[in-house]
């Protein structure tokens, strides 16, 4: 079986994996990082989104062997020493979730979005998150939360 080395949430892992193992199953079943959810399993809903080498990806559509040598950040690695990331805080304060199932993916897609565009308009947030579905239809507050977090991150960067 192929051997892979992946850095996940700041920890280096080396594992033998079956080639057909999907990254999301590696994260959840092998590493126990169940914060990353599986939603549709058809590359549509974005619940399984993680950041891989700086770019948001759907981990249900990446083989673990493809992630060999990569740096992966999941929702579980976002907080800094117990302090929530501005996006985590903003999703909380702006009530950007109802059932919460899409939230890890929404937040990780937003991490990718804000890395690309630190100050997106409402429209740009909606376009940037077009690969993530919320079935509680909470998009209004999700957009609000991403913009709130962007403002906080901007403030932090210029302080």
């Amino acid at each position: 079986m192929p051997r892979i080395s992946v850095n996940v949430d700041g920890t280096a892992f080396t594992d033998e994996v079956e080639p057909r193992l999907l990254l999301v199953h590696y994260l959840r079943d092998r590493l126990g990082k169940t914060g990353t959810n599986i939603g549709c399993d058809t590359s549509n809903c974005g619940a399984c989104t993680v950041v891989m080498d700086g770019l948001s990806v759907k981990s249900c559509t990446v083989l673990a062997v493809q992630a060999d040598g990569s740096d992966v950040t999941t929702i579980e690695g976002l907080a800094d020493d117990g302090r929530w990331h501005p996006l985590q805080k903003a999703f909380h304060t702006e009530h950007a979730l109802q059932c919460g199932y899409c939230t890890p993916g929404m937040i990780m897609a937003s991490v990718g979005l804000l890395a690309d565009n630190p100050d997106p308009s409402d429209e740009e947030v909606r376009e940037g998150l077009e690969g993530n579905l919320c079935r509680c239809t909470g998009y209004q507050n999700i957009v609000k939360a991403v913009r709130t977090a962007a403002a906080e991150m901007h403030e932090g960067a210029t302080r």
Partner: peptide
């Protein structure tokens, strides 16, 4: 697709 799809 969407941004995640276009990244890969």
């Amino acid at each position: 697709g969407d941004p995640q799809v276009r990244h890969r």
